[in-house]
Design a protein around this nucleic acid. Structure first.
Lengths: 342, 342
DNA sequence: TATAGAGTTTAAATCGATTTAAAAGAGGAG
DNA sequence: CTCCTCTTTTAAATCGATTTAAACTCTATA
């Protein structure tokens, strides 16, 4: 260990000036004489001086860092394409603005106070982007009211919170409508957890599409699962065990759709012959399965962009155009429905 | 904005004691009287006081943060299963040790000094985990010699660096040997970029297996690509265009193998009938394609564990058992080779 | 009634930077 | 030689915590 602690003082000593001069010189302040500036720069170079960001942050009362907090569901957050793409979007924007990214998985949803504390500990960041489902409304509001800059990814009743939302209802509506248009009548919907907003909204969109098309809503066609591939497989198995008749499947996300596809393949059920399948998300995996999955495209990377841009412009007191940003989705037709582009 | 700046001073004033007492009381020092302690705690609660981590870090000269730096290849790092799982492993360990995670994508490999600076800027972390291929040996050594704690993911000539490595040569050897054992003779190898260590090592393993089995190495069976799915597809197409005859394919990673699989499907080439395919990595996607991909499993999450544990124990001056940790790989037999478990 | 000693509390230094207001220096005009 | 600018440099305060050594209270004992 050497050199680890070259401080501004060391540079000042070597250059025979005060620390004030060093700071001014290195920041390019016009007050310092050109000769002095050179002197300081030489000294800094010789010592390989790099300003300590912590000291700087303390003085400036800002860290140029934002924190992204995601729910910790079973240590598989980052491999989930949804979060991975979100992260990429956020990272790209932060990179462009020279912000740092602090990453936190929030502790279990169960222990609310722990979650709250962990978030607050992140005051080492200037603001946070909070992913849905991590903590409940109340805690988020407490956080926002404490004055800490937050962008929340998802729906929130409260008006005064910056949010970026997906149009889950609209997307689910589109998916369901597509199945109806190609002539399907008995459409199963595998939902995500119904204590999560996205699960609820996608179910709502599904119901709405049925209603608008005068198709009776049949409770027995709804199965609540957990967004995992395994649970999609299991859902398809359950349907068979229970002798449910259906000609289409709308899965709450691609992973569950892909799980179901696997079950169909193993059981010689033809897709899209016997059953048309639509997913939700449009993850990469949907393009490598066979048949390729028709799905609702969700602009995950763009959501990341929007959230990061919104937070940064808020931090810099620039005008925030809109408190709620709603990102729209669209249908991507591939092979699992048996329909050409309409 | 209110409350945003409750400092230890505010608490001290409310409790009518000095800041020293507040600090001591809240850290549970036995010197402070039990009554005083209660008083302080009440005041802190009433004000909703949370110690400022920056101030604390400055004084303690450590941040309880480590930084993970990955090469920025075209804004698609985090969706790459390799990095995502690495990240998950690292995050899990840091969580357990109450460390924070600062995430950085290193700027382009071209601009070395920018990369170097960006890394050094991360002195706001206590140490860094550096992923391979981001910067060259020289810069890494400079960094290490500066005394900054680094764990490098990959091979490095220098002795004094903490590293966690994969056994790429061994893995490639196993893959190739498997293809030979099931009777394949003309084995194509799609390599990753040959200016990356992993690309080189996997090619070496392939060659070694051929040599040991007295199979002539044929230069025309080697195609250099870039680890992407598209490039795998393109490689398979190239082979066909050039009328190369072969009965097996060892792809440098799963993504390229999956790309090739897609080409075979489109061109009615049977796998494993006409050609046996082996990948490398064992990503989730390999289990959803059809046929399911036989591959070399790489313990990505465990590499993350190992790197994080190693860095943390180094930071805490605990004994670091070994400077180089080599993680082994193993063959996972699925459907793309047409062989039962040997 | 001093006085040692144990138990509590606090003033002040410190971490590494930035910034402000004041001081110092340089030069020109009267 | 003095006064006044203008330029350049610096001492000192500040950010928010922790920690050390000194100071202050009590008690109990000689």
């Amino acid at each position: 260990m050497k050199n680890l602690t070259v401080t501004i003082k060391d540079v000042a000593n070597l250059a025979n000036v005060s620390t004030a001069t060093v700071s001014l010189a290195l920041s390019g302040d016009s007050r310092v004489n050109i000769k002095t500036k050179k002197l300081v720069e030489e000294a800094a170079n010789k010592l390989n001086y790099i300003p300590n960001e912590i000291g700087r942050s303390l003085r400036a009362k800002k860290t140029e860092t934002i924190s992204f907090i995601i729910p910790n569901t079973s240590h598989h957050v980052f491999t989930h394409p949804y979060f991975a793409q979100l992260l990429e979007g956020i990272n790209e924007v932060l990179d462009n603005h020279n912000y740092n990214l602090l990453l936190s998985t929030s502790p279990s949803e169960k222990d609310e106070s722990a979650a709250y504390n962990k978030i607050l500990k992140n005051r080492r960041a200037d603001g946070i982007i909070l992913s849905s489902a991590s903590i409940n409304d109340l805690n988020i509001l407490r956080l926002v009211e404490s004055g800490f800059p937050v962008v929340y990814l998802g729906k929130l009743r409260h008006d005064n919170v910056l949010t970026v939302e997906r149009d889950d209802i609209g997307g689910a509506y589109t998916a369901t409508e597509h199945l109806i248009r190609i002539g399907r009548k008995r459409i199963v919907h595998i939902t995500g957890p119904l204590d999560h907003q996205e699960g609820i909204d996608r179910l709502d969109g599904y119901k709405k599409a049925l209603l608008d098309n005068k198709i009776h809503f049949d409770e027995s066609l709804i199965i609540e699962k957990d967004f995992s591939r395994e649970s999609g497989y299991e859902a398809a198995a359950e349907l068979m065990r229970n002798h449910i008749e259906y000609d289409a499947l709308f899965a709450g996300n691609d992973l569950m759709a892909i799980g179901a596809l696997k079950f169909y393949k193993e059981n010689k059920i033809s897709v899209p012959g016997d059953v048309s399948v639509v997913g939700f998300d449009d993850i990469e995996m949907s393009t490598v399965v066979s048949p390729m999955l028709t799905t609702i495209h969700q602009p995950m990377r763009e959501i990341g962009y929007a959230a990061a841009e919104k937070l940064i412009s808020f931090l810099n007191n620039q005008e925030v155009q809109e408190k709620r940003t709603i990102m729209s989705t669209h249908l991507v037709i591939r092979e699992s429905c048996g329909a050409e582009r309409l």
